[in-house]
Amino acid sequence: MSSSTDSPTLTTETTQLSPQPDTETAKPTKKITLKSSDNQIFEVEESVAMEFATVKSFFEDSPSTDTVPLPNVTAKPLSQVIEFCKEQIKFKANPDEAQKKKYNAEFVTEKSDKDLVDMIPVANYLEIKDLLDVLNQAVADRIENKSVEYVRSFFGIDNDFTAEEEAALRREHAWAYEGVDED
């Protein structure tokens, strides 16, 4: 993990680098306050907040607001999402595909299953497409080649098939089950 996510010099730079061509009204302040559902306050650079399409459109509609309430988002996944977006801003300023790939890979590798899964609805809700792609792929990689039972318990899914229905489905797509050891 990068240790420089909170570097004050860098955040100043990124603020200047953030162009806001579609904002017609007066520029909002440089810091934006996000409030999680468990009432934690996050002060983030405007450029980072604008990575969240949902927050961006909120500001376009109500530019005078100073605190954005995020009723569906709790503090922990939000802080991780913010950490990711801060890094992406750096890559926007200095494109380096190899470094970005490396960072993205490290970002997901060090997270627990639960952390990853908890971030997905947040990234979906805030519409951060790059992060969503990274997270979805990371979770998919973790369940790839795992048994159906494993995936059920991973996501807490209840099996509502009858034994006959399940057998019929397996027969219909027999090609996909060849050579698979069940559980």
Binding site: I120, N124, E144, E165, L169, H173, A176
Partner: peptide, 27 residues
């Protein structure tokens, strides 16, 4: 308890053979 649409989205990133296999998770 991720909603089904979010789960569908995650499953779309599985290779096709795996994606077909997890069809028996639930209806």
């Amino acid at each position: 308890d991720l909603p089904d649409d979010v789960l569908d989205m995650i499953f779309s990133f599985l290779p096709i053979r795996n994606a077909v296999q997890i069809g028996v998770l639930s209806t």
